[in-house]
Structure formats: C-alpha cells, structure tokens
Amino acid sequence: MITTQEEYSLIDRVLAGDEASYALLVDKYKSYAFTIAVKILQNKGEAEEAAQDAFIKAFRYLNNFNKQAKFSTWLYRIVFNTAISYKRKNRNQFESIENQIIEYSDRSDIEMKKDDKRFFINQALLKLSDADRLAVQLYYMKEYSLEEIAEMLNQNINTVKVRVHRARQRIADELKKILKEEAVNL
C-alpha cells in the first residue's frame, strides 16, 4: 500500500527520469484504469489499449500534475477522456456494420436468455449515457467519495448525485419496460 506522500515522491522520481518508479504507479492503478475503460467501451481489448494509452499520456503530462488533487483522480480523468475518444473514433468506423450485428444478436439473445436478470440489467446499463453509467458504477465501487467522482468526471458534486440517482431510476424503468411485470418477480 502506497501512501499519498510516497506517491508524490514516486512522481518526483519519475519526473527526475526514473521510469521504474512509474511502473510502480502503473501497477497500483492499472485495475481501476482498466475497469473504467471497460465500463465505457464495453470491450476488453479496446479498454486495455485505451488504459495503456492513458498511462502513456499521463506520463507525458506528469509535470502538469500539481499535487493538489490525488494522482488517481487526475489519472482517471485522463482514462475517462481517452476511453471516450476511443469510443467516438470506433463508433465512426464501425457504426453501420456494428448496428446490424447488435440488432441480430439482441434478438437471438433475448430468445435464449429470457430469465437472465444480469443480461437485462446490462442491456439497461448500456442504454445510459457514458457519464451516467460511469458515475453509478464508480459510486458502487465504494473506493471513491462523491466529491472524488465529481472531480474525476469534471462535474459538480450535485450533478454527480443526480446522475447516480437518475441512472438507477432509468435502469429500473428500463428493466420494467423489458420484463414488464416479471421484473418484480425475478
């Protein structure tokens, strides 16, 4: 476990040219960075690429980190923005073909997985905006306070609170719409 002070001294060593110290920071935060990217991109391969790219960007701009916030908060903001730009880029590339594939697989999956609660909630989660989905998932990770989540997403704390509540409401409503009365008996 690295304390904030130890983390700052690691950052100083990285800035002085010690790349091995950066490997320690990557090791510490890679799972969170990867999880955030997966939540946005819904694709493990792309998420890994985006998370690695975010760490590389963070290294290049490390001297801009002013030590007033947590390193993790600053890093996750970079991960969030990188993943969003990956998503935009890939959406442009695959939109027409992928839409057809998703439509087909949805139909067949619904036929096969009528009782799969997890599947339906995931479907409902995918209908949320990236910011709403990430806000609610970070909230349930219990690792960060609402203030930190707000900082990560570059938003006001009240906006994040609203996002978390609204996301849960929407998932519940979406689930109700999909399963109608069956949702409450699951």
């Binding site: 997966v38 890994e48 109700k176 949702a183």
Partner: peptide
Amino acid sequence: RELEIVHEFLKRETSLLTP
C-alpha cells in the same frame, strides 16, 4: 423492489477487473 434489484445487482457486479 424494482430499485432494490438494480441496487443489489450494481453492488454485486461492480467489481474491479484485472487487465
């Protein structure tokens, strides 16, 4: 009950993934 299903699911499924 509707909100609880979502709440329990998010609590259970929102775990860290390993790269």
